[in-house]
Design a protein around this nucleic acid. Structure first.
Lengths: 254, 254
DNA sequence: GAGTGGTCTAGACCACCAG
DNA sequence: TGGTGGTCTAGACCACTCC
């Protein structure tokens, strides 16, 4: 079918999926004010015809915007622009991103200090995850991440050597500033896709306090995370101490 | 079309959606061991025919199980049982549940102490959310929630009176033990569907420490949450202090 | 080239809501 | 009663992976 937006079958062989494109159109219409708060959208079959896509594709696009909190569906009545469409409801803690990316997203320039790499035994918090062998060896990175030069997150990262064998994994150079473990793992064909994350408030001990430039006894947020590849294999364990006065976490709960 | 599972069109007029039912069948097969780790499933058209559903419905069901971490899709190759299918990857912090339900889910009996209700001004943490009028009045509940009689969460909850007018909202009786604000709001036609949640580690002050039976200066997890109805209207603001030695939070990041 | 998952379409029937 | 969103089907073509 032809398509005024050149989106129809036969016109698209690459690029983002159609629902994403349609969602972008509608999102721009809402955020740009062309669709006002509480305004009703045309009925799905009609809007689908206007946009030259099937109703299934349109519904997929609308679902994306509902997830973002921009639209609301009311069965038997219609689909409406949310009454608070401008609010940004995107998760921070829910999105799986590298620490490097996290710092960039908050608008800072990432940096690193105190970088050390070594070979360690299984970390105490993850012995049961990576198997019972207490002798198994891990590539262990210690570093404190900076945002515009200010320490914000202290990281202890463990990758089992068993997942690195026969890959072209490149360890960080000693003076690395914005080296991303995620990107290095991805380049080696090991992309973390899911992480289980335990959220724990703790008091900064002398070591953490010194690294994060805090007084001992200050509250910090400790995230203990087990990362899995798409296959379900655990590939990375991290313990990250966050100075939440500088980087705050948000979650969207549904 | 007929259906050996009596799931086909014409046989179902109610009940859960077909993808959910198909997902349950596959989930039971994986968890029951009839589909072993790393085993390949039949190709989608074939499996869809076996289960007497369309390929679209089957794909929907498979997507559910991928979200749960039980299956993995590999383009051009096939769909496989995850190599770590038994791991439970369901979020705790991501799910929007009432405190009452949270305590029940952890296997405890919920209780309440120190229940007080009053009329308050807008809470400091949410003035910009509920409008600029500093004189607006809120129904304010203070209470400490117990799990098997032990204090675990101290709650300060604020509902604007403006959302309660012309509803049959019933405030908690003074001796309420497992009264749920969520359920009371839902019964009044105001169901919170989304919440923005800020995650903040803090030190217990004297008041919080006394209520949670902790020593002042112990770390606790403070969640500041703004809840929205499906329309996008903010309907509830909470500040909850958690004793994370008794209730731990998990997030699944993707 | 053969087989797999990824995407999109067109159309049907249903449940719900308002008048 | 008519219109809306909710669900499901059948079929098509594409991109990717392996042989």
């Amino acid at each position: 079918m032809s398509n005024v937006l050149q989106l129809g079958v036969g016109f698209r062989t690459a690029g983002p999926p159609l629902p994403e494109l349609i969602a972008s159109l509608l999102r721009d219409a809402v955020l740009g004010g062309r669709l006002g708060a509480n305004q009703r959208l045309p009925a799905e079959p009609e809007l689908a015809e206007q946009l030259k896509v099937s109703r299934a594709t349109l519904r997929h696009a609308v679902s994306i915007l509902i997830q973002e909190g921009l639209l609301v569906r009311r069965r038997g009545i219609g689909t409406f622009v949310s009454s608070v469409p401008s609010r940004v409801l995107r998760g921070g803690l829910t999105d799986l991103t590298s620490t490097t990316e996290l710092i960039r997203r908050q608008g800072y320039t990432p940096g690193t200090e105190g970088l050390e790499t070594q070979t360690s035994k299984a970390p105490a918090g993850a012995i049961d995850i990576f198997g019972q062998d207490p002798e198994s060896a891990f590539f262990h990175i210690t570093r404190t991440r900076l945002a515009d030069g200010v320490p914000v997150i202290h990281c202890e990262e463990f990758v089992p050597y068993s997942v690195l064998t026969d890959t072209n994994f490149k360890p960080p150079p000693p003076s690395a500033q914005d080296w991303s473990l995620y990107e290095a793992l991805s380049a080696a064909g090991i992309t973390p896709t899911v992480a289980e994350c335990r959220v724990i408030p703790v008091l900064a001990d002398k070591s953490i306090a010194k690294r994060l430039r805090l007084r001992p006894g200050q509250p910090v947020l400790l995230l203990k995370q087990v990362h899995y590849a798409a296959s379900g294999e655990p590939v990375l364990y991290c313990e990250n101490w966050h100075n939440t006065e500088l980087i705050e976490f948000q979650v969207v709960r549904r």
